[in-house]
Amino acid sequence: MESLVAMKQGSQKKRPFSGEEEADAIDPLTLLSVLPAEVSEKVDKPLIVIPAFDEEQNIGVVIEGIREQVPQFPILVVNDGSSDGTARVLDEMGVDFITLPYNLGYGVALQTGFIYALQNGYNSIIQIDADGQHDPSQILDLHRELMTGDADVVIGSRFLDGGKYKTPFFRHMGIKMFSLLASICCRQRVTDPTSGFQALRGKAIRLVASSYYPPDYPDADYLILLHRCGIKMKEIPVNMDPKPEGKSMHHGHKPLYYVFKMFLSIFVTLMRQKPSI
């Protein structure tokens, strides 16, 4: 009942910096049945968040790799309404996982993990894809950089320092174009705006868990949003394998929509007032 009241209040609350069009938007954080846990910023409490959709074939290998490389880090998989045996594999492996009632998309699954992390007092998050593209042995590199550097977001880049990752021509051109746009808007070099291999802490976690986060393909627009919120980010070189199994989320007619959405989202992100997180 409290949640429903909170939802109603959340839907009616109008933030001073949001436009009229956002008046009905619910901030996911207003739905928390438990308030974000108070955790000392000095005590590191990391969580690995893995959004997974129909990854029965790959998720087991990814979990095993993480458990081998960083057994001390707890793992949370967000099963994004998979229709295959992803949930069964996770259950058999004894992994902590949240199942969404239906497929909501990569960004929403990721955001769910971040909301869970805030609820449970985790103060650093490493996000990694479930398809086996990312190398679990580099989780520690990202985490170390997050803890020792001054950046609140550390992004694993495929293309930094002459990375050898090969992408199809049109996708490569798209990445280059949005890298350039993100670099100009963020006033720093961005080489891989589509990387899902990231480590975040503090304000960045709260931003992802909030309604400001663009859940529909969060890439260059998300990086620009981070910059506008005054959140420092840094890229470090990582190895990535081309997608081993399954389709990319940018297949079929989706690349066209992706380009349209990204341009629109970047434009409106720049036009909006700065979110106060």
Partner: peptide, 23 residues
């Protein structure tokens, strides 16, 4: 279209909440 967008956001948030509560 505006109403559908609002409802989509609300359903998305509720679905996230249901997932976390079930967990």
């Amino acid at each position: 279209s505006i109403r559908i967008s609002v409802l989509t956001n609300q359903v998305r948030t509720l679905s996230q909440h249901i997932g976390i509560l079930y967990h």
